[in-house]
Computed example of a mutant assay.
Amino acid sequence: MPHPPADLVSYEIRLQGRLDDRWGTWFDGFQLSAGSDGTTTLTGPVTDQAALHGLLRRIGDLGVTLISINATLPSNGDFDE
């Protein structure tokens, strides 16, 4: 199986409030999951910093509160090719 590009990093973005599954298409490539504490977590890949900033603008456009954003390690734990 091919490795994703070296600059492709996954992020976990936690938001205050619940976004239902229909928002998944607006956040293309991200999985949405509802927390029991009334939050929503978006998880998915971001190609570069410009894409990350674009994603954060979309979140700002919704008017929801950003709780946290964390880069996550690839599932195999290996950043090298």
Rank of each mutant, 00 (worst) to 15 (best):
T39D: 12
L62P: 02
F27N: 07
T25E: 15
F27V: 15
G60D: 14
T65W: 02
L73H: 12
R58N: 12
L73F: 13
L55Q: 06
A71M: 10
Y11T: 07
L66V: 08
I13P: 00
D21M: 09
D61H: 06
A50P: 07
L19D: 03
I13E: 01
F79H: 10
A6C: 06
D61V: 08
G44H: 08
N76Y: 02
F79C: 09
R18A: 05
T41D: 03
D21P: 02
T40V: 06
I69R: 06
P74N: 10
D48S: 07
I67M: 11
T25H: 11
M1G: 12
F30S: 09
L19M: 14
T47H: 02
A6E: 15
F30Q: 09
D78L: 14
L66H: 00
G77W: 10
D48G: 06
E81G: 08
G60P: 01
R22K: 13
D7W: 00
R58K: 11
R58M: 10
L55G: 08
W26L: 14
G63Y: 09
D7L: 07
G77R: 11
V46N: 09
N76C: 06
G35T: 12
T47S: 05
A6S: 14
I59W: 01
W26T: 12
D37R: 12
D21V: 05
G35F: 08
G17V: 06
G17P: 07
L15I: 13
I69K: 03
S10K: 13
T41C: 02
L66R: 00
L19Y: 13
Y11D: 01
T40W: 08
G77S: 07
P5S: 15
P74W: 13
T25F: 11
N76A: 01
R57Y: 01
G35D: 07
V46G: 06
H53V: 01
S68K: 03
R18H: 13
T43V: 13
R22E: 11
A50C: 05
H53M: 05
P4M: 14
I13L: 02
G44V: 03
L15Q: 03
A71S: 14
I67D: 01
M1D: 07
N76K: 03
E81L: 04
A50E: 14
L56G: 02
W26M: 09
I59T: 07
V9P: 01
E12F: 04
G17E: 02
I67S: 02
L62I: 10
G63D: 03
G54C: 01
N70C: 07
G35W: 08
T72I: 12
G44F: 03
G24E: 15
D21Q: 14
A34G: 03
